[in-house]
């Protein structure tokens, strides 16, 4: 088991947002976390990345606890996140954004070879290397956010709503890229509100509702589940 989250409780002030969540991710999988707005999906990822300390529970990565480590050490262990809303550094160039993605890697050769891989994956970023990230289109910014995360050479990639705010024609290529990244050996934990696209690429999925896992199973099975169809796929199906 690459990632094991046990009975995770996270609170903002006095308000608990996660009431004991259990999630497991095996090496090589794409796992999706689905759920409505406010269900606690981002909170889960923020807790994994150490941006928010859990109230109780455990987050184990390759058997080692992450929940007491500062964020930068979590990145060094090989867990990296492309956050919701992309959060690229708008006034840095595309190249500098990618360079920051590799901040934990001190070896120049490794950084150069990762950069080459990322630019092969997203040729668009190569063309715009000197451009400020804030001037990119939404789809390009999402590529940059994912490319930047890959620069750290992660074992586990956390993606928070990669399709959010993208033009519909951009969504498919982003998801096929996620699949390609996974096939290249990176385990992916993916948060999505648009359940349909997510379930098509995910091996397994969890459905969160107000801070609890209410359903889980293989992507194919959840796609067929009448409950899921009614709640999360209604009208969203294309």
């Amino acid at each position: 088991m690459l990632l094991r989250i046990k009975n995770l409780r996270v609170a903002y002030g006095n308000v608990e947002a996660l009431h004991g969540v259990d999630i497991e991710v095996r090496e090589g999988e794409i796992v999706a976390i689905l759920g409505a707005n406010g269900a606690g999906k981002s909170t889960t990822l923020r807790a994994i990345s150490g941006l928010h300390r859990p109230k109780s529970g455990e987050i184990l990565f390759a058997g080692q606890p992450l929940h007491s480590l500062p964020s930068h050490e979590i990145v060094m262990r090989g867990v990296v996140q492309a956050p919701e809303g992309r959060r690229v550094f708008a006034t840095l160039t595309v190249g500098e954004n990618l360079e920051m993605g590799a901040f934990v890697c001190k070896d120049k050769k490794t950084v150069a070879s990762r950069l080459k891989k990322v630019l092969d994956l997203f040729p668009r970023l190569g063309e715009r290397r000197e451009q400020l990230a804030g001037t990119l289109s939404g789809g390009e910014q999402q590529m940059l956010a994912i490319g930047r995360a890959l620069m750290s050479g992660p074992r586990l990639l956390l993606l928070d709503e990669p399709s959010l705010g993208l033009a519909p024609i951009m969504i498919k290529p982003i998801f096929s890229t996620i699949k390609a990244i996974n096939q290249a050996g990176v385990t992916v934990l993916l948060v999505e509100q648009s359940a349909f696209v997510a379930l098509k690429v995910a091996h397994r999925a969890y459905v969160l509702d107000v801070g609890k896992v209410v359903m889980s199973g293989s992507g194919a099975n959840l796609l067929k589940d009448p409950e899921v169809q009614k709640t999360y796929l209604g009208g969203g199906r294309k």
Binding site: S49, G50, L51, P70, S71, H72, V75, M76, V80, Q81, A82, P83, R87, V88, F89, A90, T91, L92, E96, E99, M100, G101, F103, V104, R148, A149, S152
Partner: peptide, 24 residues
């Protein structure tokens, strides 16, 4: 420099910098 770029990154967005592995 790389460290200087990290300084600019932290000035822009602290949480995103943490997610890049920068010790803010």
């Amino acid at each position: 420099t790389r460290l200087g770029t990290a300084i600019r990154a932290v000035a822009i967005d602290q949480d995103a910098s943490r997610l890049m592995g920068i010790d803010v």
